[in-house]
């Protein structure tokens, strides 16, 4: 069978990027291998764990369930693109540090990206809504309590981002 290759162009964290990819290459692999952005982690590669979450045209999505060819022409933001331009941490990132929202850190980019998008759209979530919003991300270390505390702190402090 012929192995077709395709040219893709997208804006990643504000920078225009191009790559030549096989159609079967996921957006996650393209971000990591072609663009060197290894902050996007791959846990399960089939849509269960949420570690690969990135923003595509503003929407939080699983980058292991999207082929790079589908993201052609899109605006992508990864965890590397969340911190303010001058350095330092975003409000969500700061909350994770302050509340011990991570241990090994493998799941953290997915949680941080997911929560950033969720709080942008739901600035005043209830505790139950926050837990629901975090249900699409798995963590094998923390037992989630630190993550929930970080989410609550970030929800309270979004205005200073």
């Amino acid at each position: 069978m012929e192995t077709q290759v395709a040219q893709v162009a997208m804006t990643v964290n504000g920078t225009p990027r191009r790559a030549t990819v096989e159609p079967r290459k996921t957006l996650a692999d393209t971000l990591r291998e072609d663009f060197g952005l290894t902050g996007t982690h791959l846990g399960c590669e089939h849509g269960v764990c949420g570690a690969c979450t990135v923003l595509v045209d503003g929407a939080a999505i699983r980058a292991c369930l999207m082929f790079a060819v589908q993201a052609d022409g899109s605006e992508v933001v990864t965890v590397e693109g969340l911190a303010p331009a001058g350095g330092g941490l975003s409000a969500v990132q700061r909350a994770f540090r302050e509340e011990h929202g991570l241990q090994c850190g493998f799941c953290t980019p997915g949680f941080v990206v997911s929560l950033t998008a969720y709080l942008r759209d739901h600035p005043m979530p209830s505790g139950a809504e926050l837990r629901d919003a975090l249900s699409g991300n798995l963590c094998r270390c923390t037992g989630y309590q630190g993550i929930i505390a970080a989410a609550r702190r970030a929800a309270g402090g979004m205005e200073d981002q």
């Binding site: 089939h46 849509g47 699983r62 369930l65 999207m66 589908q70």
Partner: peptide
């Protein structure tokens, strides 16, 4: 291929296979 939220995991697990994917996106 629509949203890929069922098809792409099946393809990754090699439970589904296609020589041609027609993306409606």
């Amino acid at each position: 291929l629509a949203g890929g939220q069922s098809l792409v995991p099946l393809m990754a697990l090699r439970l589904a296979r296609a020589e041609h994917l027609v993306d409606l996106g």
